[in-house]
């Protein structure tokens, strides 16, 4: 493994371990409620969910179905909480690639190493991708094992499709943080951009289904390419996932070009 990648991963390891434990615990907690919910379908069934205001149901991804394994898993893990937790983790790691070390001053020595600036950005990206992959693998296994343990009857490949989407989505946002950091060197700006795009993108995608005025905005929301294909219900939305991956590549190239051109630490 290239030395900058392994070094970055070593730097991320505590943070990654924390996020992995946290997200796994969060998923496990929610999955452990499932048996009690299926025991009482009237209380949580369609009629019960219909009582929530329409806009709120939209924001929660429709809340159509809570009592089937797929519906429960989608609503609680794959609709909002899973992606958002991953996105926050990815943005934090993406910021640690360049903007944070630049602000603290440790990037000064790194850029004077005999390593090309473009390679530096690429290797920091590779570390981000590997870190997120590790997080995704562990949480995927946890969801798969626990969902079988509570008899959710969700197929392995559907969980894999959902988790792949979360990974691609979070990698996109992590790369967005990295790219803004590469261009500006300010982690506050990078965090703000990720926050606006993530929250705005999610609202546009979930509300835009039923609000025509903003429906056209859905196609620029990253969440559209994750949620619209309903991976848990319909399996891999390959085309949409390729859009997420392509956008990540575009952001990476932008990051590399931007960082290669500018003054560091001024």
């Amino acid at each position: 493994m290239p030395v900058l990648v392994s070094k970055s991963l070593r730097d991320y390891r505590r943070s990654l371990a924390g996020w992995t434990v946290g997200i796994t615990a969060f998923f496990a907690l929610y999955l452990s409620f499932y048996p009690s919910i299926t025991k009482d379908p009237e209380l949580y069934g369609r009629a019960a969910l219909a009582k929530f205001p329409g806009a709120m149901r939209d924001l929660m991804g429709g809340l159509e179905d809570f009592t089937s394994g797929i519906g429960y898993l989608h609503s609680l893990v794959y609709q909002l909480f899973g992606p958002m937790l991953f996105v926050v983790c990815a943005a934090i790691l993406g910021n640690r690639a360049l903007a944070q070390p630049e602000e603290s001053g440790t990037l000064e020595l790194t850029v004077t190493l005999p390593v090309d600036r473009r390679r530096l950005v690429f290797e920091r990206f590779a570390a981000l991708a590997l870190g997120l992959l590790g997080l995704a693998v562990v949480t995927f296994l946890a969801v798969w094992v626990l969902s079988s343990a509570v008899d959710m009857n969700v197929a392995f490949d559907r969980i894999l499709a959902g988790h792949t989407g979360i990974l691609l989505l979070s990698l996109l946002f992590g790369t967005l943080a990295l790219a803004v950091g590469a261009a500006t060197g300010r982690r506050g700006i990078a965090m703000a951009v990720v926050g606006v795009v993530a929250v705005g993108g999610y609202v546009v995608e979930s509300m835009g289904r039923n609000v025509d005025a903003i429906a056209w905005l859905r196609w620029i929301s990253p969440f559209h390419y994750y949620l619209d294909g309903r991976p848990l219900y319909q399996g891999f939305p390959t085309g949409d996932y390729l859009v997420l991956a392509g956008a990540t590549v575009v952001l990476l190239v932008t990051a590399i070009l931007a960082f290669d051109r500018r003054d560091v630490g001024v």
């Binding site: 000064e108 020595l109 004077t112 005999p114």
Partner: peptide, 11 residues
């Protein structure tokens, strides 16, 4: 970048 390997730098 290679030339920087021949330099020692104290910021």
């Amino acid at each position: 970048a290679r030339v920087r390997g021949r330099i020692g730098y104290l910021p």
